[in-house]
Design a protein around this nucleic acid. Structure first.
Lengths: 230, 230
DNA sequence: ATGTGTGAAGTGCTTCACAGCG
DNA sequence: CGCTGTGAAGCACTTCACACAT
């Protein structure tokens, strides 16, 4: 389920829906893939065929930001890749903290996907003194959650991942907000109240599983879900 | 981004959107919460206020399945909770396998959220002989992925969680499909091609993080995202 | 008096289909 | 000729607002 505000100004002054923004990330990944495969140029149709997308939608999404293709030809993979990275704000390094050094927090800290492509996990934070001072297998240090604000400000941390129990999540959100962090990815199975100026996304595994069950129970045929996060 | 078919028959013969289905899961969680707090009755307005929902939408969503409220009064928490569980197909136990016994797979296997409320993790599966025969900290056994089909059929497994590297995901999807599993939650950062009759949802952490960055970069105010999975 | 259930209105998202450009 | 970029059409989702039931 979604909540909250929806749109933001595009380069041209237009407004971009959240759905569009998520698709841009998907397109970026597809282009990464093509670039690795040595493909030099592509077209909206080819992308659509390869990755189960809609070619008109790709063109519409890109059109919000400018004209990046060549009529009759298509897109240059490298250029479009770079353009998307710029649109998405991925031209600089983004610092991330993970609050909650349990199994999930530790696993996320070591999860390779983050450390490439502009995200750096600065540290794990917990309130359990048995964990503080330790490290994840990958070497990410575990700090006292009371040090969060100081470290977040010092290292210019913009993003936090919440991997704490449901009961603790609300308090942790306050701490994270207090530390000046405004982008939050919540894995705790609770609905949190976002503070002003904060962007809060939830990854709720139980809701996802329940949704699969709903589909199976109702016995629909080939269906497919969100390639997002969501 | 979403893909694939969208809708399925409701109890009355109507058709239910995926967004509605996800919200039903959210409502269920809210009612669980209220029930634990000892609240006996509630109303769409109260739910909306407490959990940042929209009261009209709650009523609309429920209306697809019947009339569960009392005019002038509201809903009985326990009854509505039970009704939602039934609608969502959560009246029986659902068996789950996790493919990929790395950090993430292990963490998910031990993640408390699953083991309550009708989901049972039957086992972890991997191709690494160093991991096969072991167990997660929580005691979930790690099997050879080649045994997946046999075990899945024996234990009537309906759901699989993919926690394997991107490069392995496509092959694993084939194995899982072959084992007769039709509901799949994919954590690998790739776009998989769903097979016929399969429901495939992706939880893509990188897309989620990139989306947070997009919001921060464009500097919108209080916004909030998908309580899902996204 | 109060809150549901719901037609109707409003808003947003996706897809079509083609002009126009290379 | 092929493919982009885009207005227009189509479709889906959300919100409004009120009749009706209790």
């Amino acid at each position: 389920m979604k909540r909250g505000s929806k749109r933001r100004r595009a380069g041209r002054g237009a407004v971009i829906s959240d759905l569009t923004a998520q698709r841009l990330s998907v397109y970026l990944r597809c282009l990464d893939d093509l670039e690795k495969s040595g493909v030099a140029t592509t077209s909206s149709q080819r992308l659509a065929d390869l990755y189960q997308l809609n070619s008109a939608q790709i063109r519409k999404d890109l059109a919000h930001f400018g004209e990046f293709g060549v009529r009759g030809v298509g897109y240059t993979v490298i250029d479009l890749r770079r353009t998307l990275a710029r649109i998405l704000g991925l031209t600089r390094e983004w610092k991330v903290v993970i609050v909650g050094a349990g199994n999930l927090g530790m696993a996320l800290a070591d999860y390779g996907g983050f450390n490439r492509e502009g995200f750096t996990i600065v540290g794990l934070f917990d309130s359990d003194s048995a964990k503080i001072g330790g490290r994840s297998r990958g070497g990410v240090p575990v700090h006292d959650v009371r040090e969060l604000a100081a470290i977040a400000r010092r290292d210019q941390v913009s993003l936090a991942i919440l991997a704490v129990p449901a009961a603790a999540a609300d308090g942790v959100l306050a701490i994270v907000a207090e530390a000046g962090i405004r982008g939050i990815l919540n894995f705790a199975p609770v609905r949190l109240k976002p503070r002003a100026g904060m962007t809060l996304k939830a990854v709720d595994l139980k809701v996802q599983l329940e949704n699969l069950v709903f589909h199976l129970t109702r016995g629909d045929g080939a269906s497919a879900g969100r390639q997002s996060r969501r």
